[in-house]
Structures are given as structure tokens and as C-alpha cells.
Design a protein around this nucleic acid. Structure first.
Length: 902
RNA sequence: GCCCGCUUGGCUCAGUGGUAGAGCACUCGCUUCACACGCGAGGGGUCAAUGGUUCGAAUCCAUUAGCGGGCACCA
């Protein structure tokens, strides 16, 4: 306690406390011994096992940790469950790339060996992530850590798949799908994104066959000429008069030589292009639909590698799709069938992961019908507002609209890493969906089965996360206690991919929404407003920020970001680093003067007998506590941080510590000194508790050093646990301890002190130069307040005054004095013989008076408006009238002062 | 194309009907016995524009502009 450094070193504290908390089991819900404690649970959005944590993760984790620590201190049985996602495509890609460097492909290893290799990587990479989370201070229960490929979760995946299949909601079939030629797998609609593309629109002439149409042609417009080789019709709108006579006619498809019909379909927009559309059912989703409507054949001319097939004709067979495009256009030109080519901007689907242009292909895949799943989700939102979105705008609407327009979900992926689809095929093509090979064999009556080689979309297992992690399908205690979870905290880009699907499966299998609230975090951009990304290399590494400013300061910055989109601003972190240092030094002062002090003491006896600043700080503390609790209940993290920051810095440091100093630093030991010191550490201890969910490390570090801090301070639910601030009770804020009178009185003192300081500063007085302060006020209460020996000593100390005198007015004060009007009534004068520039002083007073008069004029105008008195609430009218009186009084006082200056 | 959000001091952001706020930056003065990552005192904004509703608008409505986001099967 003798040698507390002047500067807080975050690293020290960060290294010590996390390991201890973990050892104590303080993160586990079992630490709570209160049988009746309400449960509070959060499942973490499992980070991809391939990734390292970025600032977005740090943001989410900070918010979840604040909530968890807060609720834990409130005595809830808290479970924050950590885990990782196997991230099918990404992970397979990472490991494949590693193999590539060794000159190998996954096929060289074979499926089994490859998967072994992925597991190996999973352990290395996963360790990095959990290490980072520990650094963040995340109070997750590591004993319940889950991975989406764990046996338990895999079992849940199979169970859900089988049940949905049995109910006809999962089916296998041929459909046109999004195919990524690079990743060699199908993708769901959510895994492709449309990007604008500057391209060309090619106008191709298709000659008509048939007798009387000889020599005529139809022109179609297309962005993908190479697909014409797979055309099986041309469509026009049935109401399009230009083409009325053509419906039913036959076209001789150039290059292919195939005969194809002209069909009529409402889908065609007569206003676009030529009003005639080429139809390629095998390679375009819309054409596919139209093909089904008109029973058109499907000619597959592009394969899974985006190369032309044999069906495209010998001349094109094996060509890359873009090469084929050039060739087709050349050919049309040669044949005189290329009408024109125009520049055209359109959007194109790309694979989210590798940015390859998607090739729509017809393929046999597993799908999930969403209708029955989404209906309850929409109903729960409409009828019960579950889940509740924070912020409600825009996310509730975005979520609803997506659910309303949902289409079937493509479940299968042509990968090796993931949950292999629990479907087996007999030699004669029978499909058996079962929970295990044994079950499948029993059903099939044969051992001669082949399992479907495909795996499930990663998001299929994620969709079950809130209950699969708690032991489902078994009815475990955890499931009963912690489902549904309390809140989900996540980034907005996975509301569809993940949140909505969890809601749907939760309602389907647990009959309850998996979380009451969904808090959507903001997005952190770089300082230019660009999204942070690995590719751009503009990301800020949380670990570097931790190293530079400390975890607590970073957490405070992140907490105040909350749901706001914001540009990363290091200055903010620096200012919170300074705040941490302020806390450190406030504690340092308290500890350097703590002999004889005990936390929890010093506030004995009638409150009315306490000193003003003690009543005041207790009032402020309780106001702050109430406010923080209220803010957290609404997920208003920013407000909570602001409250804590200003309570600690402004109220506690700037005023309370200063006002306590005389008593606390008395050189002679005395019961009074002990009591004052106890009060100081008691308030500090409460403040540290309030700060703890946001700044776990520094608060623990300091709390451990407080005299009298120990097990007896723990929340009763944690009785018997080792002493840690983590398990103390969170100050609720008691209305009974809020003292309006003390706050009014302190405002008067603060105002008086500030006025005198302002005067001192205005004439550049050295701190060492003492002044005389004369207060004049007709208010008995104020005279009593300022005139008490205690107050006079404190005011003198804070204003560096040699003498304070309090009177009924400033009459008789020498002309050479700087004066100011007090907000709560009365005036103050500081005699400054020889130091005062009368003209300058008059000017200063005049400026202040003018300002008041301008405001008074506004208020007068308002009162003069008869409509105002008539229509505004009486309470408001009175408020304005009172304020006007107050301002007028002050302005008059200023006027008098100016006159007194001569 | 449709839908949504944002626009507040130099910067990053709070504020959602009744006196414009914070942090940083800036100016002045301070080695005042916790802290210069500090202390004290200041300056700075017609709240994007226009119109409307209202006794009263940064706040509600409409339009416009700029920025950002989501959705969409227009070849």
C-alpha cells in the first residue's frame, strides 16, 4: 500500500485476475447457491473456428459480458455459454489451401484423412480464439464450451433432420440452384450476393422456321449469349401486339440448329429489350420456372466447372463460359445475326466467400420447406412481440419482411467438412433417412447402404445452437433452466442466416422463442467510414488496442458504441484509458489515506447528522446506480457509460474527494478521521462495483486492495465463495437515499466556488494568491449554508480564499471588487484593490447581462403570446414565468453591480 | 426498382416536442501535498435545405439534396 504507482498498468491486472476468476469457478452458474435465483442465459454467437477475433467480436463480447456480469451481481443464475462454429466452407477452404502449399489436394488425402487434418487445424485455431476471449475478460462458462461438430450437437442435427424429413418438410429433388464453380458446391440464396456489374446486352436474331414466316426473325436481348446454346424456347408477353402472330411459331436456333417454339408468358416485360426473351431452363432461375410452366426441355450446356458441355456442340465443348461467350458472339456476327451490342449495367450473383460468379445449375439437392417453420415465427412476433429487437427500428421490419418472402432452403453442400447428411441409399436407389447407420440398416433390411456424401449447410447446426448446446434432445437440467435464453447479441448481417432460423427451429422443437430479446450491435468502420475487412487490410486488431490502452478502456469504448454504426476513433479509447487512470488515482489517494478505514463503515447514525458532502455523494451514488440499472435494462449501454463516467469523475473525484480531503488527510489519528476515511473507501467500493461489469480488471485490482473488502461483501447468493468483486451485489440505488435538499445545497456550493474561480481566472491570479470572498444573499437558507464553519472552510479551501464572509447583501463592499451573481440567489464579491480594470469588469458584467436579457426577451415574447397561456399546460406556463423572474432578477443584480463600479 | 436509416460545434458521437450536450481537439492560467493519462477557467453549433403541423420543432409530417444499408427473377 506504500508504493502505488501513479500510472495504472493494465497488463498486470489483466494477467492476474482472469485466471483466478476461472479457477474459482466464478463464471459457472453453479457458483450461485440460491435455489430460487432467476436464470439469465446468453449463448454466444459462435465465431468461425477459422477466424481470429476482430473488433466486431470484441464489441459483441463486451456487451454480452457487461450484461452477464451485471446480472450475476444482481444475484441471477447466469450462464454465458461459449463455443465455436465449424464453418463448413471457410474451414474446408483454409485447410485445402494449406494442402495446396504442400502440393496436395483434398482428393489426394481422401475424405477420412482430410477430415482428420481439419480437426487438427480446428484445435490450433480454436485455441487462439478462446485465448483472445479470455483476454477480453469474457465471463463465459468454459466448462460448457461447445463446438457445432461435437457429438452432442451432431446428434441434435441428425435428430432434427430426421424429424423434419419424417414430417415432409425436408425433401430431396432437382432444382435450379446457385453453384459456385470454384468451391464446387451449391449455396443457399443467402450465401450469394448481387453485385452491380458493367456489362453488355447482346441483341441476337433468331430466324423463324415455318412456311409463311420464312426470312423473318425474332431478336432477343441477353447478357449471357453463351447460354443460347441451351435455349429451348423464346417467350413473349401474351398481350404484346408486336408478337401476337408469332406465339406458337417455331424458331431454328442458330449454331445449335435445334427447333424451338415461341411461347407466351406473363413474366415477360414487353418494355424491356425487344420484348422477346430467350429461355434457357437449365441455366437461369427464371427461365427454369418458365420452362416448368411450359414443359420445356432442359438442355444442360454448362457443367460444374463452368465449362461448356458436349450438348453445347462439338465446337464449344470444353470451353470456359466466357470464352464460349466470345465465340458465340463472333459466330452470330459472321452469320449476320448480331443486331447490336449495347453497354448495360446489371447485377450479378457472386459467391460470398470467393467472389466467383455463380453459375445457376440444375442439380439434385436436399431442401427444407420453410412455410410451416416461418408461420409460427411470424405469429409470435405479431402476437407476442417475440423476440423483441433492439433497436426495434429497422430490425423488426427487416426480419419480418424476410420471413414473409422466404423460399425453400438449400440444405446440402458438396463438401467434406460438416455434418454428413443422415441419408443412406440402397443399391436399388431407395432413400433411407435415419438417426444412425444402424437404424438405417434396420429400416432397409440390408447392410448394403451408401451414405449421401454431402454435408449440411453450416447454418443448419447453428440454427439449433440455443437448445443443442444445452443438451437437447435430452431433457437436461440445463435445458430446463436456461432455455429460452435471455438475449441474443449479434451483428446485423446474420439476422436472416442465423437469428431467424434459430427462432424457427426453437419454436418448432421447443415451442418457445429461443431468446426474449435480440440486441443488434452497430458496425465498426475505419476512420474513413469504410467497412473493416481482411481483404482491405483496414481492420483494427483488438489485441493491439488492448496492448496500447488496456482491455478496460477498450471495453468502455465498445460498450458506448452499442448499436450505433461508428467510425473507429482511437481518441475515444485514449480518453477512457485516461478515465481508468483517474479511477486508479482516486483509489490511490483513498488507499494512501486508508489507515483506520474500513469498507462499509462511516455512515452510521442519522443521515440528517451527516455532513452535506456525505449526504450529497450518497445521493449521487444512488442516482447513478438507479440510472445505470435502468439503462442496462433497456440495453442503453451508452447512457450507462456516460452516467458512470461523470459520476466518478465529476461528482466523486472533482467534488467529493476534494471536500473530504481536510478530514481524510488530518495528520492526527482520530475517530473522526477514521470515519471520514471509511466513508471515502465505502463510496469508492460502491463505485467500483458499479463499474465492474464494464471494467472488470481495474475494479477487481483495486477492490482487492480496499481495507475491509472480503467475503462478507459478496451477494448472499454467493456466500462462501472466495472474495471477488465479481460476486458482490450490484448497487440497486435506493430512492430513500436520494436527497434533493443535499443536491440543491451542493449545487449552490459548487456554483459559488465556480464563480469565484472564474473571477480568479479572469484576472490571472496566481493560485498562491489568496483572496477575500464576500457573499451577499437575502436567502436565509443560503446564508446558513454558506455561513457554517464547515462550509466556509471548504469554500475557502476550494477557492483559495483567506476569508469568507456571508451577509445579507453586498452593500458596503469596496468599489474595487469583482462580482458575480449566484444561480440560486445572491451575489458574490471578491475585493481586488489595484487589480481590477473597471472598464473591463463592466464589460464582462455587461456581456453576461446581455445574455440574460436576450433570454428574458424570448421568454417574455412567449408569455406575451395569449395562445401560449391558453394552450400550453399550466405547469409549463408557470415554469416559464418562474424562469423569467429568476433571469430578470439576475440581470437586475448585474446591472446594479455595473453601476456600483461607477 | 422497392424499402429503410443517417445528416447536431474542427473530429467521433449523445440527445426525440418546452433553456443545444459529452469526449477529443482548441484558447488562457497552473509542477495546488491522488492523478500533466492531471487541475482550474474559457471559446466554439441559425441541430443538411425548404415547406408544413403546433402556443412552441434539433425533436412530428412532407419534399429536396448528400451519404449509407437492406431487399428484388427484369432477360
Amino acid at each position: 500500500m506504500m508504493d502505488i504507482p501513479k500510472t495504472y498498468d493494465p497488463k498486470q491486472a489483466e494477467q492476474r485476475h482472469y485466471a483466478r476468476w476461472e479457477e474459482l469457478g466464478a463464471f459457472a452458474p453453479e457458483t450461485n447457491r440460491d435455489e430460487g435465483a432467476p436464470a439469465y442465459s446468453i449463448v454466444i454467437p459462435p465465431p468461425n473456428v477459422t477466424g481470429s477475433l476482430h473488433m466486431g467480436h470484441a464489441l459483441q463480447h463486451t456487451l454480452m459480458d457487461v450484461l452477464s456480469r451485471h446480472k450475476r451481481m444482481c444475484g441471477h443464475r447466469v450462464l454465458w455459454l461459449p463455443g465455436l462454429d465449424h464453418a463448413g466452407i471457410s474451414t474446408q477452404k483454409v485447410v485445402s489451401d494449406q494442402l495446396k502449399k504442400e502440393g496436395l489436394s483434398r482428393h489426394d488425402l481422401g475424405r477420412e484423412k482430410f477430415i482428420e487434418r481439419v480437426w487438427q487445424w480446428r484445435h490450433e485455431s480454436g485455441g487462439q480464439i478462446t485465448k483472445q476471449m479470455r483476454r477480453e475478460g469474457a465471463s463465459v462458462d468454459w466448462s460448457r464450451e461447445r463446438f457445432t461438430m461435437d457429438e452432442g450437437l451432431s446428434r441434435a442435427v441428425r435428430e432434427v433432420f430426421v424429424r423434419l424429413y419424417e414430417q415432409g418438410m425436408i425433401y430431396r429433388g432437382d432444382r435450379i440452384v446457385n453453384w459456385c464453380p470454384t468451391d464446387q458446391t451449391v449455396l443457399s440464396d443467402l450465401e450469394v450476393s448481387k453485385t452491380p456489374q458493367a456489362g453488355k446486352l447482346y441483341y441476337l436474331r433468331y430466324p423463324l422456321k415455318n412456311g409463311n414466316n420464312q426470312g423473318r426473325y425474332v431478336t432477343v436481348a441477353t447478357t449471357r449469349p453463351e447460354t443460347m446454346l441451351g435455349d429451348t424456347a423464346v417467350a413473349v408477353n401474351p398481350s404484346d401486339e408486336r408478337y401476337l402472330d408469332l406465339v406458337g411459331a417455331t424458331i431454328e436456333l442458330p449454331l445449335a440448329g435445334r427447333l424451338i417454339p415461341v411461347v407466351a408468358d406473363e413474366y415477360v416485360d414487353p418494355a424491356f429489350g425487344t420484348g422477346a426473351v430467350k429461355i434457357t431452363p437449365a441455366h437461369d432461375p427464371n427461365d427454369y420456372e418458365m420452362g416448368v410452366r411450359h414443359e420445356l426441355p432442359q438442355v444442360v450446356v454448362i457443367d460444374v466447372h463452368a465449362r461448356m458441355t458436349e450438348a453445347a456442340g462439338a465446337e464449344f465443348n470444353g470451353l470456359d463460359r466466357y470464352k464460349a461467350r466470345e465465340r458465340v458472339v463472333e459466330k452470330f456476327e459472321e452469320l449476320g445475326l448480331l443486331e447490336k451490342v449495347v453497354d448495360y449495367e446489371f447485377s450479378i450473383s457472386k459467391c460470398d466467400r470467393c467472389k466467383t460468379v455463380i453459375e445457376p445449375l440444375i442439380s439434385t439437392q436436399w431442401f427444407c420447406r420453410m412455410d410451416e417453420l416461418r408461420r409460427p415465427a411470424l405469429r409470435f412476433l405479431a402476437e407476442r412481440k417475440e423476440p423483441r429487437f433492439f433497436p426495434e427500428i429497422p430490425y423488426e421490419k427487416v426480419y419480418t419482411e424476410w420471413l414473409e418472402n422466404l423460399r425453400d432452403w438449400t440444405l446440402s453442400r458438396q463438401l467434406w467438412w460438416g455434418h454428413q447428411i443422415p441419408a443412406w441409399y440402397t443399391r436399388d436407389g431407395q432413400v433411407i433417412v435415419a438417426r444412425s447407420l444402424e437404424e438405417a440398416r434396420a429400416v432397409a433390411g440390408t447392410d448394403d447402404l451408401t451414405q449421401d456424401p454431402d454435408v449440411l449447410d453450416t447454418w443448419f447446426s447453428s440454427a439449433l445452437w440455443p437448445f443443442s448446446t444445452l443438451g437437447w434432445p435430452d431433457e437436461t437440467d440445463d435445458l430446463k433452466t436456461f432455455y429460452p435464453t435471455s438475449v441474443l447479441v449479434t451483428a446485423r448481417d446474420i439476422i436472416f442466416l442465423w437469428v431467424s432460423r434459430m427462432v424457427m427451429t426453437g419454436l418448432k422443437f421447443m415451442d418457445e422463442t429461443p431468446f426474449q430479446d435480440v440486441f443488434v450491435t452497430g458496425t465498426i468502420f475505419d476512420k474513413h467510414g469504410q467497412r473493416m475487412s481482411k481483404m482491405k487490410g483496414n481492420g483494427v486488431d483488438p489485441l493491439e488496442v488492448f496492448d496500447k490502452y488496456g482491455v478496460d478502456a477498450t471495453r468502455l469504448t465498445l460498450a458506448s458504441i452499442g448499436s450505433t454504426d461508428t467510425r473507429w476513433n482511437e481518441n475515444q479509447v485514449e480518453s477512457y484509458r485516461n478515465f481508468a487512470n483517474k479511477i486508479w488515482n482516486a483509489a490511490r489517494f483513498s488507499l494512501l489515506n486508508s489507515e483506520g478505514a474500513t469498507v462499509g463503515h462511516g455512515f452510521e447514525g442519522e443521515r440528517a447528522a451527516w455532513a452535506l458532502h456525505d449526504r450529497w455523494i450518497v445521493s449521487r451514488l444512488n442516482q447513478a446506480a438507479q440510472s445505470v440499472n435502468r439503462s442496462l435494462a433497456e440495453y442503453d449501454f451508452y447512457a450507462a457509460v456516460q452516467t458512470l463516467y461523470h459520476f466518478f469523475w465529476d461528482d466523486f473525484c472533482d467534488w467529493y474527494i476534494e471536500l473530504s480531503k481536510a478530514d481524510v488527510t488530518a495528520t492526527e489519528p482520530s475517530p473522526e478521521r477514521d470515519a471520514a476515511r471509511s466513508r471515502l473507501v465505502t463510496v469508492l467500493e460502491q463505485a467500483l462495483r458499479l463499474l465492474h461489469p464494464f471494467m472488470p480488471y481495474i475494479t477487481e485490482e483495486l477492490w482487492q486492495r480496499l481495507p475491509g473488502a472480503g467475503q462478507h461483501l459478496l451477494h448472499e447468493a454467493y456466500r462462501g465463495a472466495e472474495a471477488t468483486i465479481m460476486l458482490t451485489s450490484y448497487p440497486e440505488g435506493s430512492a430513500a437515499l436520494i436527497d434533493e435538499r443535499a443536491e440543491w445545497e451542493m449545487r449552490a456550493i459548487i456554483d459559488l466556488v465556480s464563480r469565484v474561480r472564474n473571477i480568479r481566472s479572469g484576472i490571472n491570479l496566481k493560485p498562491s494568491e489568496a483572496v477575500r470572498v464576500i457573499v451577499g444573499t437575502a436567502d436565509d437558507n443560503l446564508r446558513e449554508l454558506f455561513g457554517s464553519a464547515k462550509s466556509m472552510a471548504q469554500i475557502a479551501r476550494l477557492t483559495r480564499a483567506s476569508e469568507i464572509s456571508v451577509r445579507e447583501s453586498l452593500d458596503g463592499v469596496p468599489r474595487a471588487a469583482a462580482r458575480a451573481v449566484l444561480e440560486q440567489g445572491g451575489e458574490v464579491a471578491v475585493p481586488l484593490e489595484g487589480l481590477i480594470d473597471f472598464a473591463q469588469e463592466r464589460e464582462r458584467l455587461g456581456r453576461e447581462r446581455d445574455k440574460l436579457q436576450r433570454e428574458a426577451a424570448k421568454l417574455e415574447a412567449q408569455l406575451a403570446n395569449p395562445q401560449f397561456a391558453e394552450r400550453a399546460p399550466a405547469e409549463k406556463v408557470k415554469e416559464v414565468r418562474d424562469r423569467l423572474n429568476d433571469i430578470a432578477q439576475r440581470a437586475a443584480a448585474l446591472q446594479q453591480m455595473m453601476e456600483a463600479l461607477g
